[in-house]
Simulated scan of single mutants.
Amino acid sequence: MSSYKGHSVFALLLALMFFHNPLSIALALIGAIVPDFDHKFKKDNVYKIIILGLVVFISLYILKLPYYIGLIIVFLGAVFYFSEHRSFTHSIFGVLTLTSAVSLILIWAYELVSAVTILNNHYLLMAILIVLLSFLFLNKKLLMIFIPLFFISLFILPTIEISYIEIVLSIFLGVFSHMVLDSFTPAGIKIFAPLSSKKAYRNFGLSMVFLLAVISIIYHIPVLFVLFRSYIG
């Protein structure tokens, strides 16, 4: 199984353990692909991210609108450009950095578009921004699967608003899942890069999967308790 397929499936499985909102699940899947932009064969994509950030920054500055979103896009591109493959972006510090950057891009874009448009459907607006985010990070093959499934899920599943905290947690789960899955490879990951070159391997991955499973069970205890009471009653 190719890298992007493996990371997509793993992130999807983890997301379903915690979320029932298609917006959250989609963000987790996108987050799972983000760390590999430190790879050499994606340098052209990194240049596009930096150029996009500069265009957004200049455009918003000229229009006298909040331009911070452009700066954070440039920052994200710079992180990929200066990172070695499976180094910083695959570390604990990298996970936190990428989660923060991608979350800010989405949240600031949402606030900006909400302020300058008359679109009252916040759920639809967030869905559109997530699709745009997918075009930034997902490859063409994955997009062909992601886009139709995402829109189908929006129509068949209940409309559930997503909070800023849920956005951050969803992206974090996706980015973190990438790091965990790569720890199962023979090369491992530099878990504390750039402060240390110490690597983590299979045992780390297994312990993280176990920890996520436990957290998921604890997270669902209230729901399980309600179901249990309903069944007993």
Score class of each variant (00 low, 15 high):
Leu23Gln: 08
Leu136Thr: 13
Leu211Asp: 01
His178Gly: 01
Arg229Pro: 07
Ala28Gly: 10
Leu138Gly: 02
Gly70Asp: 11
Ala193Cys: 00
Ile33Gly: 00
Asp44Cys: 04
Ser216Tyr: 09
Gly174Glu: 06
Ser196Asp: 14
Phe210Gly: 09
Tyr61Cys: 11
Glu161Lys: 10
Ile165Cys: 05
Pro194Leu: 05
Phe93Arg: 00
Leu119Ser: 13
Ile215Lys: 01
Leu112Glu: 13
Tyr61Pro: 07
Ala193Asn: 08
Leu65Ser: 14
Pro35Trp: 02
Leu169Gly: 03
Lys48Phe: 15
Val113Gly: 07
Gly188Asp: 07
Gly233Cys: 15
Leu96Asp: 05
Leu119Arg: 14
Ala78Val: 15
Ala101Gly: 02
Leu157Trp: 12
Leu65Arg: 14
Tyr231Cys: 12
His220Thr: 11
Thr89Ser: 09
Leu23Met: 10
Tyr231Thr: 15
Val79Met: 08
Val34Trp: 00
Val34Pro: 00
Met144His: 07
Asn139Met: 05
Ala200Ser: 12
Ile152Pro: 06
Asn139Arg: 07
Val74Arg: 03
Asp36Val: 05
Leu157Met: 12
Glu161Tyr: 11
Ile218Cys: 07
Val46Trp: 02
Val34Thr: 04
Leu133Met: 12
Lys199Asn: 00
Phe172Ser: 01
Phe88Ala: 04
Met144Ala: 14
Met179Asp: 02
Phe184Ile: 05
Leu96Ala: 13
Pro194Trp: 06
Ala15Gly: 01
Phe225His: 11
Leu13Asp: 00
Val209Ser: 02
Ala32His: 01
His85Trp: 06
Phe150Ile: 05
Phe192Val: 04
Asp36Thr: 03
Leu181Cys: 04
Ile162Gln: 15
Ile107Gly: 06
Leu157Cys: 08
Leu195Gly: 09
Phe155Val: 14
Leu60Arg: 12
Ile147Thr: 07
Leu60Val: 14
Leu106His: 02
Arg229Ile: 15
Ile221Phe: 15
Ser24Asn: 10
Ser100Asn: 10
Ser83Cys: 07
Ala11Val: 01
Ala15Ile: 03
Val113Tyr: 10
Ser91Cys: 01
Leu133Ile: 07
Phe225Cys: 00
Tyr164Ile: 09
Asn21Gln: 05
Ile145Arg: 00
Ile160Met: 14
Ser177His: 01
Phe137Ile: 07
Glu166Asn: 12
Phe80Ala: 03
Ala11Trp: 04
Phe19Gln: 04
Leu14Glu: 05
Leu157Tyr: 12
Ala109Gln: 06
Ile107Thr: 10
Leu76Ala: 13
Ala213Val: 09
Leu138Asp: 02
Leu106Ser: 03
Thr159Trp: 00
Leu143Gly: 03
Phe57Leu: 15
Lys42Ser: 08
Tyr68Gln: 15
Val209Asp: 03
Ser196Tyr: 09
Pro194Thr: 06
Ile191Thr: 05
Asp182Lys: 02
Ile165Ala: 14
Ala115Leu: 11
Ser2Thr: 12
Val9Phe: 06
His85Thr: 07
Met17Asn: 09
Phe155Glu: 11
Ile191Glu: 02
Ala26Asp: 06
Ser24Pro: 03
Pro35Ala: 04
Ile167Tyr: 01
Arg202Pro: 00
Pro222Asp: 14
Arg202Ala: 10
Ile50Asp: 03
